[in-house]
C-alpha cells in the first residue's frame, strides 16, 4: 500500500515537472513527426508497400522518440542533486523504478497517439480497423521499451555521452520486443486480426514485459544505492 502511494507520488512529480517545461515531450513529438516525414522519402508510400512495412516504420519512430523521453527521465534528477534527495528518502529502488517508468510510459504513449494519426494522414492508411488490438500491442511494446529504458536511464545518467549510450545499450536488448511489436502492428494496421501463428508474438510481448519488469524491480535498488 505504501509502495503504491510512493509510486503515485513519484509518477505525479515527474508528470508535473515535465508538463511545466515540456522539454522532453515537445522534442519527442517533433522528432517523431520529422522521422515520419523523412521515412516517407525512403520508399514510395503506396498502399501496398506501406502496409508491408508499417510495423517496422512505426516502431522505429516510437523507439527513437521514446529514447528522448527516457534520456530525460533520470537526467531530470541531475540539477540540484535531486537524485540524492530521492535516495535519502525512505523509498525503495523498486518504487522509484515503477514511479518513473509509469511517467515515461505515459509520455511515450502520448507521443505514439499523436504519431499514429499523422502516420495515417501522411501515408494514407486507415489504421483504425483493428483499433483495440492495436492499442494492446502498443501498450505491451511501449511498456517493454519503458521498463528496460528506465533502468538504463539510471545506468547511463552520469556518463558523458549518455544521449548515445542509452540507445546503444537498449536497442539490442529490445530486439525481441521490436520483432513482435512490428509484426503485430503491420498485421493490425492492414486490418487483419491476430490469429493462428501470430498469437505467439502476443505471448512473446507479455513474456518480455514480465521478465524485464521483474529484473528491473530486483536490480534497481542496486543500481541506485550500490
Amino acid at each position: 500500500m505504501r509502495f503504491l502511494r510512493q509510486v503515485a507520488v513519484i509518477t505525479a512529480k515527474d508528470l508535473r515537472a515535465e508538463m511545466r517545461t515540456k522539454e522532453a515531450i515537445n522534442a519527442s513529438f517533433a522528432f517523431a513527426i520529422v522521422i515520419l516525414l523523412i521515412l516517407s522519402f525512403a520508399f514510395d508510400p503506396t498502399e501496398e508497400t506501406t502496409r508491408e512495412i508499417s510495423g517496422g516504420l512505426l516502431w522505429i519512430v516510437f523507439t527513437f522518440a521514446g529514447t528522448l523521453v527516457l534520456n530525460r527521465s533520470f537526467a531530470r534528477e541531475l540539477p540540484n542533486d535531486c537524485l540524492d534527495g530521492l535516495l535519502a528518502a525512505p523509498v525503495p529502488g523498486s518504487a522509484l523504478f515503477v514511479g518513473k517508468a509509469l511517467a515515461n510510459f505515459v509520455f511515450i504513449l502520448a507521443v505514439e497517439m499523436v504519431a499514429l494519426p499523422v502516420f495515417g494522414i501522411f501515408y494514407n492508411v486507415r489504421w483504425t480497423r483493428q483499433f483495440w488490438p492495436l492499442m494492446l500491442v502498443l501498450v505491451l511494446g511501449t511498456w517493454g521499451l519503458t521498463a528496460i529504458g528506465t533502468v538504463f536511464s539510471a545506468l547511463t545518467v552520469n556518463i558523458r555521452l549518455r544521449e548515445v549510450m542509452l540507445p546503444l545499450l537498449v536497442y539490442p536488448l529490445m530486439i525481441p520486443m521490436l520483432l513482435g511489436a512490428m509484426r503485430l502492428t503491420a498485421l493490425l494496421v492492414a486490418g487483419q486480426p491476430i490469429a493462428g501463428d501470430d498469437t505467439v508474438w502476443l505471448r512473446l510481448l507479455f513474456g518480455f514485459d514480465i521478465i524485464f519488469t521483474a529484473l528491473a524491480l530486483v536490480l534497481m535498488e542496486t543500481v541506485l544505492r550500490g
Binding site: 508535473r16 515537472a17 540539477p79 542533486d81 535531486c82 540524492d84 530521492l86
Partner: peptide, 9 residues
C-alpha cells in the same frame, strides 16, 4: 547534501 535537492520546475 551539496545540492539543494529541490526541483526547479
Amino acid at each position: 547534501g551539496h545540492g539543494i535537492a529541490i526541483y526547479d520546475e
